[in-house]
Design a protein around this nucleic acid. Structure first.
Lengths: 209, 209
DNA sequence: TTAAGAACTGAACTGTGATTCAATCCTTGT
DNA sequence: ACAAGGATTGAATCACAGTTCAGTTCTTAA
């Protein structure tokens, strides 16, 4: 017998898989999920179409993984900033909203794809998961705030969802690449408005920063 | 010469067009846009596949028109109730939120399709228009409320968007046919929570009702 | 060096559902 | 009644991207 997969082989396979994933991510960031054909992804990552299928079951699975990776990274950043914000619910909520919105307004194309782009059902399932993550993060903050008397008592899950809805809907116009080829004039003001809205909705004064 | 289209002809053509549209609407209401194949629509309306194409340019156009019709009717109802609510901004906002949410929780399948179902870009454009309609309606209410001192002063368009975002995001879970095959236990409580959230966000006490 | 077999390639294939259109059926004016 | 021409039909066609796989190239162990 002769050729058996070795460590080097496995490592390079992993590297190549990552490369395809990264390429797919780039393609999505550039043209959304709609523009992410398998051919385009293959070309971008410098492998053949067929190779894509040796690393991923099919296009759906690949795109779902792209979504998951991007969404997770995004969420992890937000969660980290929230964690760094200390114990004050108001500060934590401000961190959540500001970080979420700021980052969305930076990587607008990708943010739009993650939040709003029409996608297939499989990818949409990932989106649902992303939403749930944010909602759960919001829930802990809201619950703590209510317990601490910072926020008025309301149904926690519903309110957390409403906050995330308010934030993302406020961004739709600013993110949509059709509607707004150029970024909004004053992102900071937009974010401040959204933050204030949410704080009011929770029955708290916004923290200044 | 002989056959020239007459009044009766034209009327029946219009009727048949409407029938196709209605059938398409039924199909969408039953299985979403994804399940609305031309074949299914044709069968439901009792005409041939080919005939569908003599009344509509293509599937996209037909589905876009289905969306538009359903969305317009929905919006018109809400707008009417808002109009009937008199001049008090708080009452009008309550009417907007309650009617929107109540109706969504009734026709859940269709509401989900209109608000959240993954759709093609052409249909999504109609969705954007629907959102804008609601936002504009909200804007007039919010602006009036601010002018009347009922609501605190905030950026009107952003806040109106945020309100609609809060309302619809709160409904996602309750509407998604995958997640929730059965309607929520207490729709009234859900709606009350959402309403309170929005009123707080606008700096007003909710009207009781 | 060589053979076994894994990895890679991309043109051909496939599945799906929208779209077409020649044949047929109806409606109208004479 | 009948011909002109519009309306209707639905099987055949098309379009298109995703998927496959026979042939080729590369990697390893002996």
């Amino acid at each position: 017998m002769a050729y058996r997969p070795t460590e080097a082989t496995r490592a390079s396979a992993q590297a190549k898989r990552d490369a395809v994933l990264a390429a797919a991510r780039d393609v999505v960031a550039a043209g959304g999920f709609a523009g992410a054909s398998v051919a385009a992804i293959a070309e971008r990552s410098g492998v053949s179409v067929g190779s894509v299928y040796s690393y991923f079951d099919n296009r759906e699975a690949l795109l779902a993984e792209v979504f998951r990776a991007a969404a997770e990274e995004e969420f992890a950043r937000v969660a980290r900033v929230v964690g760094d914000a200390g114990g004050d619910p108001a500060a934590r909520l401000a961190a959540l909203i500001d970080t979420f919105a700021e980052r969305a307004l930076r990587g607008r194309r990708m943010a739009w794809s993650l939040l709003f782009e029409p996608v297939t059902a499989a990818v949409d399932a990932e989106r649902l998961r992303l939403r749930r993550s944010y909602r759960e993060l919001g829930e802990t903050i809201v619950a703590d705030g209510i317990a601490a008397g910072t926020f008025v008592d309301q149904d926690v899950p519903v309110v957390a969802g409403a906050v995330m809805g308010a934030v993302s809907e406020s961004l739709v116009g600013a993110l949509n690449p059709e509607l707004t080829p150029h970024p909004p004039a004053d992102p900071a003001a937009l974010i401040a408005t959204i933050r204030r809205f949410c704080f009011l909705a929770l029955g708290a004064r916004p923290t200044e920063n």
